[in-house]
Design a protein around this nucleic acid. Sequence first.
DNA 1: TAGAAATATCTGAGCGCTGAGTCAATTTAT
DNA 2: ATAAATTGACTCAGCGCTCAGATATTTCTA
Lengths: 204, 204
Amino acid sequence: MESDVLSPSPTSRRMQARIVDAVIDTVAQHGISGTTLALVAQAAGVSQGVLIFHFRSKDGLLAATLRSQNAAYRLHWQACLAGASPLQQVLGLIRADFSPTVCSQKSLAMWFAFWGEASAQPAFQSLCEDAERDRAEAMVQACRDLVAQKGGPDPELLARSIDSLTDGLWLQMHIHGARMARAKALQQAMDHLRLMLPGLAGEI
Amino acid sequence: MESDVLSPSPTSRRMQARIVDAVIDTVAQHGISGTTLALVAQAAGVSQGVLIFHFRSKDGLLAATLRSQNAAYRLHWQACLAGASPLQQVLGLIRADFSPTVCSQKSLAMWFAFWGEASAQPAFQSLCEDAERDRAEAMVQACRDLVAQKGGPDPELLARSIDSLTDGLWLQMHIHGARMARAKALQQAMDHLRLMLPGLAGEI
DNA sequence: TAGAAATATCTGAGCGCTGAGTCAATTTAT
DNA sequence: ATAAATTGACTCAGCGCTCAGATATTTCTA
């Protein structure tokens, strides 16, 4: 049986997760061009052969890692939606993007590494695209509900502004490292939101 | 004589510029991990040896390319400042980020390729950092002047919001390719600016 | 239930190939 | 004439990936 996404035994699943973690560490530290099977195997504490056994090729390994992180990211922001008020949904989506899990130095380095290679690897491109699009739709929906309830600017403009802002803050956190800390970025995002929703300043 | 940045003869300078152009094309198309001396040499129409002769190593070649693009970017936005009113400066800085030269698909692909490798290559990191910082300072100054003259929110918040927004739009243009076109991104940035400066909506 | 057979997982030495960098020879500029 | 610039064949370290065999896990049988 092919050891792809389908039918992984528990043993296999655990090993694959361990390898994916090692890929993230390695990519974050060495970039994609510096990531070799030897380094990943060493980081995971296994032999090189097992990487190919589970993922067929280096590209398969990278794609699986990207899919895995996509899924984790999605679960993370979706958790903020259920049963929350529109305002809480918007705030939750923003906070989710600045939570320690999602935007650690390591995580950012990994995302940017993949984004950097996306134009060269169409497979990466579409995976990256999907992740962002679903989340953007959720933000538009939350903003529509919020504006319908409490007033404010055009909800689509608001949603896209928030998305662009958080993306931009990610870029700055990545480039400036410790000089643009997570807390500072979140603060900035919230200040910005207050500016765009002056009527709700008290509630933010 | 070392053929570094110092003392390039006209012949040398022309060849180096030609090689740097080839690097940009190659990196944009194949990513940094897919960029080889052979590909760059082919794109430039020269032999591999000459790349090493002028830039010592592949890393030297990439670093020189990044420096060159940094300088071009800086010249480009600085041209919008001289003798312009504060509002025109702010608008000019924004427009500069969305001009065809600066944010073509190729250019974006190159920047993201380098940003992706920045965490692995400290040399890239600091080069990327410098470029953004100077431009951010110019934006803060322009916003201070603008707010002093025409009123508005806290100028530093305004400046950082604009910077984050444009960075985020770059990310979206890069990831979504044709689906987030340059004109649309610029439109979005301007809509956003009107939202933050309602008093100046008529002038934007 | 024990234990054998079958399958799934894992190892690590090794293979073929590619890519960065060298260098002696040649061409071009001063 | 001298130095600078360029070539392209070459080296060799290191890469992705293979594979024969070892080990663990599951399934079958009595």
